[in-house]
Write a protein that binds this DNA or RNA. Structure first.
Lengths: 345, 345
DNA sequence: CATGTTTGCGCAAACGTTTGCACAGTCTCG
DNA sequence: CGAGACTGTGCAAACGTTTGCGCAAACATG
């Protein structure tokens, strides 16, 4: 015989299956004595409830889905870490799907989660968020309702969709302000992936920071990127080719910054003397770059933990409100006073 | 009403549920005409089969579990990437659990996967592999059978357990040999996590490489570590304090090597002139360190892909045999001829 | 003692599928 | 034209739970 079922226990205990079921749930209408006996018996027989059967009748699977762009991105991995911890603590399973940064794969990934009847899902760094609403409609437990969806770093209004995000604008703004305080005036920005919410917001933060600090915006100082390591070298080349190159650069994320650091070293540039660079995310690696990277910290695990907690709250019918956390600038060795400006007196 | 069920379709089509079920499976005993009609109707009504109900009767969930030590480790993340791709292509869900490198959490993590009735599981870089056998026993579909288990980089014999791993010994040996060819004689090794299978094998490979190249082993040149960024600096300090410090060092993985690189830069050491450094894994980042890291490549995504493919094969009753891949040394800028040895002539 | 409440348990339906079997009709072949 | 094979479909059981309801016994209350 295979897995021990509730009826096996019932038979062994000489009671009906329903009694066993209730006993295991500590239902008060089963005599304490019997309850304890059945629980002991179940343990002894190595009983493990069939999630599948239970799901069929209760209508929920105790499984959450997490859809990400790319686990390989350290930021994403850290968020997942938090999400996994939270869902394991809440005794939820976590179904995982990845889109490889490809919006069309993103819906396929989400579809697989949905097809496995996850109770809710959290999406990290989506770029196709608009399509979730249609996909989710009618997937909920009751009349045309929707499964709860929590977006990380990606607000998008909709029924039963929530978001937990960083104040990216503020973070980028802080970074620019800090650079200005160091004496920099020509500050570049290496943008993130097109269509991403945080890309947009960080760019806005950069612009706002420039404006607030009385620096005139120069479109040439904004270069495109995708938030990948490879983007760093490309961006540096573009910036160095400028007639009037920047003395500092803020990158969309640490990955791009690290790529830029590497390219700078290869080009014989000395960081931070020749160029100050700031990253974003504060991934663990950023402490170990050469020089250590000044960056804007995001509480990544918290983001993930919060996301699943919100999701579970929504499932329980509790009220949940969107969270927006604020980042903190971590100053390390990749930024420096802009001394050259003063010239030789 | 909620999800459209097979009976809804049956009603709409004026046939019995069983006919619908068979039509959707393209069962030949349903007339082609009806089959097409029902399939069209199902599509039109937005029917999505209930995996849960199906699982209950078929006995399998089309879900695989993946248990890892830490997603945050780039090596692990890459393997997961491969695993996810393969399981998505095979239309399997992937349930995710993490142990935070803690053997006791590891069984809890695996337990959650098992409780969600995964059809099989793959474990990446376990350290508590011995305990899986007991946990899995009796969890299989028939009489006392076991769910298939695939270990990545971690062989462990057992019924229905398979492994896909790298020839770590060979990789480490290659690295040492290469260093010897560059003229190095005092080559250090920064070890990996205690209890890990690859740790042991790479250490063996290091020893073998030293022996094969006629270098006398010096226990002082082997320092402990855990395969983390933080281990690099610690290791470097230990090695530098030696009376006769090494001229080259092989690290358990790229992470430790990167940490070491950072510490070396901070200490004013010039890599590779003062010290040659080799990592292991060839994580994407290793191309962007300063200097770029010489390392032993592992086909990480392939490892993951293979693991789930083997798992699925085992599920289908097909014969599967363990795979062992061999790594390739990637030479980059962190290694150099050992010139000093020759002295000023 | 009659009535009402509580306690403890079982029956059976339900969840949405799959699948063995039965059955009726049609076809094929001798 | 009759026997057998094939074709197309439906019935009902089964998977392992949960849960509303019913019922009997015990108990409390007046």
């Amino acid at each position: 015989m295979r897995q021990v079922s509730i009826t096996d226990i019932a038979q062994a205990a000489g009671v009906s299956p329903s009694t066993v079921s209730r006993a295991l749930q500590d239902h008060p209408r089963i005599s304490l004595e019997r309850r304890k006996a059945i629980q002991a018996l179940a343990r002894e027989m190595g009983y493990r409830p069939s999630q599948v059967a239970r799901s069929l009748v209760t209508g929920h699977t105790r499984t959450l889905g997490v859809a990400v762009t790319d686990v390989t991105d350290p930021f994403v991995a850290e968020v997942m870490k938090g999400a996994e911890a939270a869902s394991r603590k809440a005794d939820y399973g976590l179904l995982f799907a990845m889109s490889n940064r490809d919006p069309s794969q993103e819906v396929a990934a989400a579809q697989i989660l949905l097809d496995h009847q996850v109770d809710g899902m959290v999406v990290i760094s989506s770029r196709a968020n608009a399509r979730y609403n249609e996909m989710l409609s009618g997937r909920g437990p009751k009349h045309g309702s929707q499964i709860p969806l929590v977006l990380v770093n990606n607000a998008q209004p909709g029924p039963n969709v929530f978001s937990v995000r960083m104040d990216n604008r503020d973070g980028a703004c802080q970074a620019v302000t800090y650079l200005r305080e160091l004496g920099h005036r020509r500050i570049a920005f290496v943008a993130g992936p097109e269509g991403g919410c945080s890309s947009r917001e960080r760019l806005e933060g950069y612009r706002q920071g420039m404006a607030e600090n009385g620096l005139r915006p120069d479109l040439k100082l904004i270069v495109t990127g995708g938030g990948l390591l490879e983007d760093g070298p490309r961006a540096l080349r573009t910036l160095l080719d400028l007639a009037d190159p920047p003395t500092a650069v803020l990158c969309y994320n640490d990955l791009a910054a690290i790529g830029l650091l590497a390219a700078a070293a290869a080009a014989g540039l000395h960081i931070p003397d020749d160029l100050s660079v700031i990253g974003y995310d504060n991934i663990p690696l950023s402490r170990f770059t050469i020089p250590p990277l000044t960056t804007v910290d995001q509480p990544k695990e918290t983001l993930g933990r919060l996301a699943v907690m919100m999701c579970i709250c929504a499932l329980n019918g509790e009220p949940v409100k969107d969270a927006v956390l604020t980042g903190e600038l971590i100053v390390r060795g990749s930024t420096n006073l802009h001394s050259k400006e003063k010239g030789p007196t």
